[in-house]
């Protein structure tokens, strides 16, 4: 495919039917799916497929992309009923006669597979997503025990792709709910030994649109393409909130 510089060997390749969600709110067209028969070539990914269609079939197709290696978080989509990064999903691994590709559900569509992520970012910003320190920092780095660093490990892997947020039933019903990604970010700072912002952070997650809204449905964990355990982080914040109410720190 064009992005991997391997010319497609179309003849004799196995083909599959691909149905892609199409919608441009600026036009009068209703949301619908367009279908194509496409060859499955080698390790072709969903992102390769989208570029193939953009360049050779339909220049109007809109989707997001950047790194094509599962680290930038641009291309989270809903493919055959699962949340997936387009760039790391190979067509042959879907093992399905038809492939259905939709934008992240429950977010406003800007065009085709591009959704409005503003509510997601607004919540990210709301939780003060940065290290808070009060004391003058040391001349050199803060010392941090490797074991303490390890506690942040899966939380700092988040690529902010929005899959967990899109998949969370509480987000669907409470538009003010912070959602899994923001709460993971919150917990990442809560467990960071360098951070001194717990007091102001607690107010941000210990409220009616905060951690208590999580009903441990685990959709976020299932949706996450980076294998992050969002529910663990949320439960950790709940324990912290309870401890605080009983006079802990």
């Amino acid at each position: 495919m064009s992005i991997t510089d391997t010319k497609p060997q179309l003849e004799g390749a196995k083909t599959v039917t691909v149905n892609i969600f199409r919608y441009d709110p600026a036009t009068t067209d209703k949301p619908h799916y367009d279908s194509w028969q496409v060859p499955i070539i080698g390790s072709m990914t969903v992102l390769d497929l989208l570029f193939h269609l953009l360049e050779h079939e339909d220049g109007s197709l809109a989707f997001r992309y950047a790194c094509r290696e599962a680290i930038c978080g641009s291309c989270a989509l809903y493919v055959n009923g699962s949340y997936r990064l387009a760039c790391k999903t190979q067509l042959k691994d879907l093992k399905a006669p038809e492939i259905n590709i939709s934008p992240l559900p429950h977010l406003k569509v800007i065009k085709d597979l591009v959704v409005d992520m503003d509510p997601f970012w607004e919540k990210y910003e709301r939780i003060k997503p940065y290290l808070i320190t009060r004391d003058e920092p040391p001349e050199k780095e803060f010392l941090q025990d490797p074991a303490a660093r390890l506690k942040m490990d899966d939380m700092v892997d988040c690529i902010l792709c929005g899959a967990c947020y899109s998949g969370c039933p509480t987000v669907w019903t409470d538009p003010d709910y912070l959602g899994p990604a923001a709460l993971v970010k919150m917990n990442r700072f809560t467990v960071d030994t360098r951070d001194q912002g717990n007091k102001e952070r607690t107010k941000l997650f210990d409220n009616e649109h905060g951690v208590w809204r999580c009903h441990t449905i685990f959709n976020c964990v299932e949706a996450c393409p980076k294998d992050i355990n969002q529910t663990y982080s949320i439960q950790h914040l709940k324990r912290r909130a309870v401890a605080r109410r009983f006079g802990g720190k």
Binding site: R64, C67, W121
Partner: peptide, 11 residues
């Protein structure tokens, strides 16, 4: 052109 965290530095 992309949200800042999507920039190539991330890779």
């Amino acid at each position: 052109r992309v949200h800042p965290v999507r920039s190539h530095s991330v890779a």
